[in-house]
Structures are given as structure tokens and as C-alpha cells.
Design a protein around this nucleic acid. Structure first.
Ligand SMILES: [Zn+2]
Ligand SMILES: [Zn+2]
Ligand SMILES: [Zn+2]
Ligand SMILES: [Zn+2]
Lengths: 165, 165
DNA sequence: TGTTGTTTTGTTATACTATTACAGTTAAAC
DNA sequence: GTTTAACTGTAATAGTATAACAAAACAACA
């Protein structure tokens, strides 16, 4: 008997892909959803998302803040934290607990359980998804699951290659 | 077709249990393993484990430190962080990333993938386990998984009851 | 358009979490 | 008993995050 295949799609971010399209699509999605849901995509918020989208590397709040400050968009911690909170709250970005850092969402619009593949060397973060969420499989014994954090730490393909050399 | 049952045992910590036995067994296990593997269970380390074992509530490093300080076992951050690192490194305790906090291990001696059930209200942490680890199900596309963090946030049975009232 | 209520931004201050570095001590190995 | 490695004590500092409140921008509506 074959195990059910849990993986729906490749972990965007760790494999070669058209990143320009990746960025464009994420931004467009965000704009669209904000329009639809009456959310306000302000300059700081938009720029914060753009900064996160530049690469699939997780960024600390203070790294983001430094970038914002360099562009005159605010240089006090709450500026960055508020923008990041907004993005995370609405699914445009994710917080990586293991790194106290943030990445743009690689699968905007989809609402499944994400598994973050975190490279311990380069801090690139891939986002895979479980077709069959495990949150449904735990939560017996009366615990009511509201949110799941699933983070896998390891080595991305690129860093494995460098290590082998 | 029935889904494979992933849950091996109830989430110790969230259900009623003989906690005195729970503590005694965890301490005994730790002592035994240290003896076997030539690890040094020093006073600070033992006391730190005992403090964590008092309840299944996650404690911040500084909470632990305050307790240690009250007993004259050291009052500078590295004291607590070093003891906690030792315990985590050898599987006697776990770090809960979502809370930046620590809990004693509820399943000492077993080496499977743990799922932490974190109550967002009382910070009690249950430790369930997946019979069929998901780390084997991801890591395709060349990502090599080394460690997994699986944390479910929600409401424990007790807090659900309080909320309903 | 002006008024009003809400959301967002700016800023200060502070709290919380964690590590580096180095000196001193203790315990194990020989 | 000397050597060596591991652990502890301490100071200084780095990194992460929030509370609180004032000012500005915006939306809703009269
Ligand atoms: Zn991309
Ligand atoms: Zn990498
Ligand atoms: Zn117990
Ligand atoms: Zn609870």
C-alpha cells in the first residue's frame, strides 16, 4: 500500500524558478486581496512586502527596518513590526519562529498548512504544503488546534553542493 | 479507507495524570542516561530540570533564572541558558519556539518526532508524537531535513471549559 | 465640505531574550 | 599530583519586541 502523497507542490524558493514572475504575482495578489477586503496597502506595507520578496531569505525585523530607514520610510522598530504584523496577519508573509524572522509568502491565496524548509546555512526558506494537513490528525484528547507551525531545518540543495566540495 | 492513525500516545501534560510519578520518572531517566553516557548532571542542571518538571507550563529562561537565583544557584543569564542548553541538547527538555520558552520532556527516552500542543492561554504544553514522522514525507526536491519543529497552538481542554463558562 | 470616528504613523521609552568573552573553579584522566 | 577538559561566575553587550501616547491620514456621513 502506497503512503498518501502529502506533498502538493515543490517548495518554491529553493528550486530554480522565474523569480521576477514570483515577485510580480505575489504583489499583484496582495493588491487584489487588499482591494477586495478593504485592507489598506500603505506605502510602508507595500515596500516591506517588496523587500521581503527580493529573495526567499528570511529577514529579521531590524534588517527590514534598516532598509525602510534607508528609504526614509521610518526608522523606529514599531514601523517595521507593524508592517510585518499586517503582512503576516493577512497571509502575505510568514514568521519563521526558529529564526525570529520573516519571509514573503510563496503561495499567496492558498490557505493550507505550510511546511517551511529552512536552510541553516543560507537562511533561504522554501514553503512546501501538506495536501493532507496534520492538524486534523492531532487535537484528540480535547486539545483544540488553532494554528500550526511546522518548520524543517536542514540544508538546501545549493548548500549541500557547497558542503560536498 | 481509514486514515493511518498518527497518534501514538496521549499528549502527556494536558490530560490528568500522576504527576509525581511523571516527575520521578523523568528525573530517574535523566540520571540514568547521564551515568550511561558520561554526561555530568550538575546541581544547576538537575535543579533546572526539577524546576521545569514542576508543571507542564513552558518557562522562559529568565523565569528559570529567577528561581535558580532565589536558591543561590546563579543569577546571571548564562547560568540559565547553559543549563537549558544542556537539557535540550540531550533531550531532557525542549525549546518551544513560539514562546521562546522551555518545557521538560514528557517522553524521555523516546526519540520520535514530537508535536507540541501549546495552550495559548495557560501556556501548558502537551507533547504528542507522530507514529509516522512527517520528516520522511518532505525533503524531496533535494532539501535535507535535519530537525523538525512542529508546534500546534490552541486551547487545552481546561481552558476550553473556562472559556465556555 | 466640514465633522466625526477610525486607522495608521511617528516617537520615546522600555521590556524581554540571548550571546560573547574571559577569568576562575571543579572534576576527570593519566 | 599534574595535566586537561568541562563547567561556573561575571560583566558587558547584542538582538528581538512591545507599550503608550501624540499626530496625521483617511473614510463615512451629514
Ligand atoms: Zn521566487
Ligand atoms: Zn542554503
Ligand atoms: Zn506530569
Ligand atoms: Zn490552557
Amino acid at each position: 500500500m502506497k503512503k498518501p502523497d502529502r506533498q502538493e507542490m515543490p517548495p518554491v524558493g529553493l528550486v530554480a524558478h522565474d523569480h521576477a514572475a514570483c515577485v510580480a504575482s505575489a504583489l499583484a495578489q496582495a493588491e487584489t486581496r487588499c482591494a477586495q477586503e478593504g485592507l489598506r496597502m500603505t506605502p510602508v506595507r507595500r515596500r516591506t512586502l517588496e523587500i521581503l520578496l527580493e529573495s526567499h531569505v528570511a529577514m529579521g525585523a531590524y534588517d527590514v527596518l534598516a532598509r525602510l530607514a534607508a528609504e526614509g520610510l521610518g526608522d523606529k522598530p514599531p514601523v517595521a513590526y507593524r508592517a510585518l504584523s499586517f503582512l503576516v496577519e493577512h497571509g502575505f508573509a510568514h514568521r519563521i519562529e526558529k529564526l525570529n524572522a520573516f519571509v514573503a509568502c510563496s503561495h499567496p491565496g492558498e490557505s493550507h498548512e505550510a511546511v517551511f524548509l529552512i536552510c541553516r546555512k543560507c537562511h533561504k526558506v522554501g514553503e512546501a504544503n501538506l495536501a493532507q494537513p496534520i492538524s486534523g490528525e492531532i487535537g484528540h484528547d480535547g486539545f483544540r488546534v488553532e494554528r500550526m507551525v511546522i518548520e524543517a531545518e536542514g540544508l538546501c540543495p545549493d548548500c549541500q553542493r557547497l558542503e560536498a566540495a
